[in-house]
Design a protein around this nucleic acid. Structure first.
Lengths: 195, 195
DNA sequence: CAGGAAATCGCACTGAGTGTAACATTCCAA
DNA sequence: TTGGAATGTTACACTCAGTGCGATTTCCTG
């Protein structure tokens, strides 16, 4: 039942991703060729494209498998629908922030900035998280009338996280991340004070 | 004083951009080669790279020269510092929305979605507008204590615009854009109602 | 007009990504 | 168990984006 084929394929894919990430961190993204990765993973250059669409997909796959993109929607589903959506998103992000605060994340972020194309795709990934978050919210508050509200809440939550992460990336004195993120959310709440 | 060199250079660059955009719209981005563009612009393939860093820079240049990226900061500088930053940004965007509501914009957006790399760089451009907006805001409200407030306001304003534009792109019944955008801003204001 | 700077070009090269066809492995059903 | 069918793997040849370099032309300035 395990399926020899499936487990082999999974292992090969993991081996390629691992080799790619390691080489990217060692030599840099631009100076690592697909031939290098293929050789390190023990496959042919052509086979690389059987597993990954492109070179940057190796990076993106890591990002996509990261804590937030999977854990955030899951955490949202456990929230109470009694509270406001933005409040719920805030809770989730604060709970998950510490998981993101690793040296590995910092190294990956640095890597993502080494090429304009990579940086751009990272932005897209972050904006894609808005969708995932919105979808998760939709199961808690299924009323289609509130759809816009949910999209806006997700936009603000992810955007706030992004700004807090920007600081954390560039300023080493910003720590712990969760505290900084909370300050940002507080500042956000005050924005719309006087109606 | 006009400078033969400068005006020639400017004209050449414009000719390349024009040829590229036209070919992209006619044949699609992927099926247009740099040789095609160079031939249409009457230059050599090598000279293309003297004017543009890459193929997608032709698209990005158009986007960068678009209404918002230059007009938005300018409009912000004319706002009164008496109002709240987010309120000011809202006014600017509503005033500029109609300029963005063109068939050309729609065609360009479609083009940008024809390749994941292009779509990604478009997202980056939009996020970059947050910075431009924040910078413009900083001259109106120079207090460094309010820096975070300004960044959050810019994030919300651009994000709201992005969501409204997404609807406008996909749903032809969303018109005029300004009205739709205003509804989004209203929904945004209500998010943080009960403190 | 001389000389330098800026623009243009050709050529050869690297590297990403694709099409294709052949070959190997795993799976499933008779 | 065996004979395909489906899936995985590879080599080869190709297109195209982007770079390095050096030669040549065009423009500006003294």
């Amino acid at each position: 039942m395990p399926g020899v084929r499936e487990s082999k394929k999974e292992a090969t894919r993991a081996r390629i991703a691992e080799a790619g990430l390691r080489l990217f961190l060692e030599r840099g993204y631009g100076t690592t060729t697909l031939d290098d990765i293929a050789a390190a993973a023990g496959i042919s250059r052509r086979t690389f494209f059987y597993y990954f669409r492109s070179k940057d997909d190796v990076l993106l796959a890591w990002h996509g498998a990261g804590a937030l993109s999977s854990a955030l929607p899951a955490a949202m589903l456990e929230q109470s629908p009694q509270q406001a959506p933005l409040r719920a998103a805030r809770r989730c992000l604060l709970a998950l922030a510490s998981q993101y605060e690793t040296d590995e994340s910092r190294a990956m972020d640095t890597l993502m900035r080494s090429s304009p194309v990579l940086a751009a795709r990272k932005d897209t990934t972050e904006i894609g998280m808005e969708r995932h978050l919105t979808d998760a919210m939709s199961t808690l508050w299924p009323d289609p009338e509130r759809r816009t509200e949910l999209r806006l809440a997700a936009m603000m939550a992810i955007g706030t996280l992004r700004l807090a992460l920007d600081d954390w990336r560039t300023d080493p004195s910003v720590a712990p991340l969760a505290d900084h993120l909370e300050r940002h959310f507080d500042a956000l709440s005050q924005q719309l004070g006087p109606h």
